[in-house]
């Protein structure tokens, strides 16, 4: 069976005034229908750029490598040039939910109007049908008084409500693939719990594939089936969520887990990962994590390593450089 989404050897570079910077290097991931892939990492690790590449939303100074492939339904998105082709992806087969719902709705247009507009672009519907679908969708995501909310502006809704409306809008076109970029980060914990449960139900009901981007390992543990840990544009560890979180092998994954305050173990010290994430302008050669790795060798042999994932256990993929030091 072919995958719903397949990304092969993706490199993303940006041309800036200060030079060409590498945002993503050699990322390969795949996703099946009905599955949730979590992408986790610190700011600047390339999580959002990966998602935006799928929708071709990266800015004009973006350079993709020639042999990269992003395949959805046997078509390589990166080879799309015309707007009509891209329309099939953006809001059609793929929808995206952003972190800040206030920024994703136009402030001066009613929510209902925005929902109808995007539905009618993608589906041959009359205005009436589009309205019915939109209101039905608002009801499904648990918005009370959907008819009233439909005629309101984004600022009239609370944060949790706005995020629900955003989810309703993203789902109304019945996408096959949903990209959720930090969808719960701006929400309070009780609202976050509501939104997570809602998303889980909807993912099951619509049987779509989801890429769930977050920096919160707790959210990943609750939502995702598989997880990819990213650092400075590279995937350093990848596999089923249970395996990765219970048996992390890459020093970065371990570092992330150790830095996290665990409410069930208040005596555990908080151990920060030493140093800072390097600027993408001087991305380390070889193993990207070597500048902060507690196991980095004195003689600097990690400088000459070529990164790449190897399967250490069935389903558990680990960066080559991390295989040795992960055993320590």
């Amino acid at each position: 069976m072919s995958h719903l989404l397949e990304i092969n050897n993706l490199d993303v570079k940006f041309d800036t005034d200060e030079g060409r910077i590498t945002a993503i290097e050699n990322v390969s991931i795949s996703l099946d229908q009905g599955k949730v892939l979590g992408i986790v990492g610190e700011s600047g690790s390339g999580k959002s750029v990966t998602a935006k590449s799928i929708m071709q939303l990266n800015p004009g100074n973006t350079i993709y490598n020639d042999d990269a492939e992003i395949i959805i339904d046997d078509e390589n998105v990166l080879k799309f040039t015309s707007n009509n082709d891209l329309k099939k992806i953006r809001g059609g087969k793929v929808s995206m939910i952003f972190q800040e719902p206030m920024a994703s709705f136009a402030p001066a247009i009613k929510i209902g109007h925005q929902m109808i507009e995007q539905l009618m672009i993608h589906k041959p519907l009359t205005k009436k049908e589009a309205k019915d679908i939109s209101i039905d969708m608002l009801n499904r995501v648990g918005i009370a008084d959907a008819e009233k909310r439909f005629n309101q502006y984004a600022f009239e809704l609370s944060g949790g409500m706005r995020q629900r409306a955003m989810i309703a809008m993203a789902l109304s076109t019945m996408p096959k693939l949903l990209l959720a970029d930090e969808p719960t980060t701006a929400l309070d914990v009780t609202i976050q719990a509501q939104v997570i449960n809602l998303m889980k139900d909807i993912i099951k009901e619509f049987n779509m594939g989801v890429i769930f981007i977050t920096h919160d390992l707790g959210v990943i543990a609750q939502v995702a089936d598989d997880v990819a840990v990213m650092y400075l544009g590279s995937v350093v560890e990848q596999g089923p969520v249970n395996e990765i979180l219970k048996n992390p092998m890459h020093p970065y994954t371990r570092g992330l887990i150790n830095a996290l305050p665990d409410i069930n173990n208040l005596d555990a010290p908080l151990t920060p990962i030493p140093g800072n994430i390097p600027s993408p302008l001087d991305r380390p050669n070889g193993c990207v994590f070597r500048t902060r790795c507690p196991h980095a060798s004195k003689e600097g042999k990690e400088e000459n390593i070529k990164m790449g994932l190897v399967e250490v256990k069935p389903g558990h993929w680990l960066d080559k450089c991390g295989v040795d030091c992960g055993k320590k």
Binding site: Q192, A193, I196, G218, A221, N242, L245, K246
Partner: peptide, 11 residues
């Protein structure tokens, strides 16, 4: 409501 980091400890 705090999401647990243990995937088996479903919320």
């Amino acid at each position: 409501s705090i999401p647990s980091i243990d995937p088996e400890n479903k919320s």
